[in-house]
Computed example of a mutant assay.
Amino acid sequence: MRDAGHPSSVVIHPSAVVEAGATLGDGVQVGAFCYIGGEVTVGAGTTFGPHCSVHGPTTIGRDNRFHGHCAIGGEPQDKKYAGERVALAIGDRNTFREFVTINRGTGGGGGSTRIGDDNWLLAYTHVAHDCVVGNQCVFSNNATLAGHVSVGDQVILSGFVGIHQFCRIGAHAFIGMGAFVNGDVPPFVMVAQEGYGRPRGINAEGLKRRGFDPERIASIKRAYRALYVSGVPLDEARTKLAEIAGASDDVRALLEFLDSSDRPLLR
């Protein structure tokens, strides 16, 4: 079945509801018992499995795939939310598995939640209000972001990971299964469960798979040892990082991450 207000290539199941004002691009498929709100824009080639709901204002890019029962663009789970106009923006080529939930932003938190491109969010993952997720991340089953969390590119969250509100996870970090994170995690660092998660080295295997050569990885390892193994105060560790950063763009990025932090470092 096709809605006359959308391109001829759009396929909408007879049981689905697409509100007036929704914009669906070429090749969009809306499965059985879905709901698409009136302030929703969906890019070409995106598909929705059965029982998905999308509330607006929400903008979704091209070639995304939403499996059954995803709840996208719902109101933020924040008691301070008073009905103000807030939004969700999702990029291109993301995969959202069953029962993924993503909330819109809050007026006090910047007004929007943002998801980048080429991410995989597996079943039952949750992205709360005002979060920013980069590109090429993998969130395993039941991984959860509280409000205002920032996640860099190519981050992996293992199953049952919980990230506390306002934390930042740097690019290429790896958070191990069941870890609870209540501080900023620098780029490249691997965190393992021990009550609240604690750093346990760098994500060396992930960096190799992404084409980091041995010299780059060695510099990141030296930075990790200065920050986490040396036992020196954080100010002294920063000084050592600055020395290493002179010959490493990766370490420079790590140092910039530390310098811009508003929360305690996970250490």
Rank of each mutant, 00 (worst) to 15 (best):
V100S: 06
A44W: 12
G68R: 02
L266S: 11
R93M: 05
A87C: 08
I36E: 04
I175K: 06
M1P: 00
L122T: 04
V155A: 00
A171S: 14
Q154A: 00
I72Q: 11
C137I: 02
Y228L: 06
V189K: 04
R168S: 12
L266P: 09
G109K: 08
N142E: 01
V155R: 06
T144W: 03
H172S: 03
F66V: 10
A128F: 05
M177Q: 12
E98V: 03
N142M: 08
E256Q: 14
S261Q: 12
Y196I: 12
D117K: 08
N203R: 05
V18D: 09
A16P: 15
V251A: 11
V155L: 02
G116R: 07
N135V: 11
G183K: 13
F160I: 06
G73H: 11
P264Q: 15
I36S: 13
D153S: 07
R209Y: 13
S140M: 10
Q154Y: 03
V133L: 12
R210N: 14
F160N: 14
T101G: 00
V42P: 11
L145G: 10
M1S: 14
E84N: 03
A4G: 11
G91H: 09
H6M: 13
V42M: 11
G162Q: 03
A71V: 15
V100N: 01
L241C: 09
L207N: 07
A4I: 15
L258K: 05
E236F: 03
A253V: 03
I36T: 10
V28D: 01
S53Y: 00
L24K: 10
Q77R: 13
G74R: 00
R210H: 12
H69R: 10
G211N: 13
E75H: 07
Y124M: 09
G49N: 01
I115T: 09
L241Y: 01
T46H: 14
A226T: 05
S140C: 12
G45W: 02
W120E: 08
Y196L: 13
H55T: 03
T144N: 09
C137H: 06
T125P: 00
K208S: 08
H129V: 10
A123Y: 02
D3A: 06
F166S: 08
D184T: 05
D3G: 11
Q165H: 11
Y35A: 09
A20W: 07
F99T: 06
V10K: 05
E215V: 15
R65N: 13
T101I: 03
A20R: 12
H126W: 05
C34R: 04
G37Y: 13
G116S: 11
V185W: 13
L265M: 09
A192S: 08
L258I: 04
K240F: 00
Y196E: 08
G61Q: 11
E75L: 14
P50A: 00
R114L: 14
